[in-house]
Computed example of a mutant assay.
Amino acid sequence: MPKIPATALRFAYKGSRLKPLRAFCQVARLGSISRAAEALFLSQPAVTLQLQALERELGVRLLERSGRRLTPTREGDLLYAMARPLVEGLDGLAASFREQVRGLDAGELNVAAGSSTILYLLPGIVEAFRERHPDVRLSLHNVTGASGLDLLRSDGVDLAVGSMLDVPADLSYSPVYRFEPMLIMPLDHPLAGKRDLRLEDLSPYGLILPPKRLTTYRLVDLVFQQNRVPYTVALEVGGWEVIKQYVAMGLGISIVTAICLTEADRQRLATRSLARWFPSRSYGIVMRKGKFLSPQARAFVELIQPELLAPRAHDEGGHSER
């Protein structure tokens, strides 16, 4: 086999420089070679080799271990700031070009949201978006928690809408709506007309709650524990609609977020605010920091919160459903 000139080798390497830069940016963003490999659909050794090649070419160490995470060195921070816009710009070049050519009335938009958000919060927003941009293919991905965040990080969706309690460092959360915690019960329940309702008054009655892994159950448990009030769970079941139906049947009482209560619900259920003991729940927009928003995504965000797209918009808040 004829020997390949060294100049040709250098040219071939520089021709594929995007790959090691992309690998470096993913590791710097996610803090882990394994997570970067998953996001890039590569093996861990392949990502490691690309990082080593990049460090050899630049002659500096780009990453160092800090606890369980890999974090950029001083030189790595500089390269990340320079390389990230280039990598994201090239990765999004084809989609951006198509969007610019076809305009806003074409393309697609992927949004992650949990069941309660899709059912109670998004219908009006989706309706308005469809009226303004009928040619955009809108896909709502019914996912919550870690699954929704993984879709965001891997660019499987453009943005997410939901409720967050703890916000990872690589994501931004902008709360838009707040809803009160509510006690729901049958119309003829003893607590329905009780004056000066106390948390202790709930103790004799079995609660119908979402599964333990979801935020509502953990929050209910925390509040009762902090106030040293005993409580019992009569039934664990997923979905606000199922919970409301079982409460209406007299199988127990429940603590829900006001987002799920419709006018029809208020005619068949008695409701009492529990804002004295339980915090309100915020719902808003979750995005990956530094992500380029397509015109379709910007139009959707504009319908939810116009000021989010202003230059002085800032991050706050964290994710879970129910």
Rank of each mutant, 00 (worst) to 15 (best):
P5T: 04
L9N: 07
R10K: 08
R17I: 00
P20S: 03
L21C: 03
R22L: 06
V27T: 05
R29E: 15
A37E: 00
A37N: 09
E38N: 12
Q44T: 15
P45V: 11
P45W: 14
V47P: 03
V47S: 13
T48G: 09
L49G: 07
L49P: 04
Q52W: 07
L54F: 01
V60G: 07
L62S: 07
L63A: 00
R65E: 15
R65W: 05
T71E: 15
P72E: 06
L78S: 12
L78Y: 13
Y80C: 14
G89F: 09
R102A: 15
G107T: 02
A112Y: 12
A113P: 08
G114S: 12
I118C: 08
Y120A: 15
P123I: 08
V126R: 02
F129N: 05
R132Q: 10
R132A: 10
H133Q: 03
P134H: 01
R137V: 10
R137Y: 13
G148C: 10
R153L: 12
R153W: 02
V157H: 00
D158Y: 08
G162N: 10
S163D: 09
M164E: 14
V167R: 05
A169H: 03
L171D: 06
M182T: 09
L183A: 05
H189Q: 06
P190M: 01
D201I: 05
Y205D: 07
G206N: 01
L207M: 07
Y217P: 00
Y217M: 08
L222K: 06
Q226M: 09
N227V: 08
R228S: 14
V229I: 15
V233C: 07
G238F: 14
G239K: 07
V242F: 08
I243S: 04
I243P: 04
Y246E: 13
M249P: 04
I255W: 07
V256F: 01
L261K: 11
D265I: 03
R268N: 14
R276F: 00
S280C: 11
S282T: 09
Y283R: 01
R288C: 12
K289R: 15
G290M: 04
G290C: 00
R298H: 04
V301T: 05
L308T: 11
A310Q: 15
P311L: 10
A313C: 09
H314T: 15
S320M: 12
E321M: 01
E321H: 12
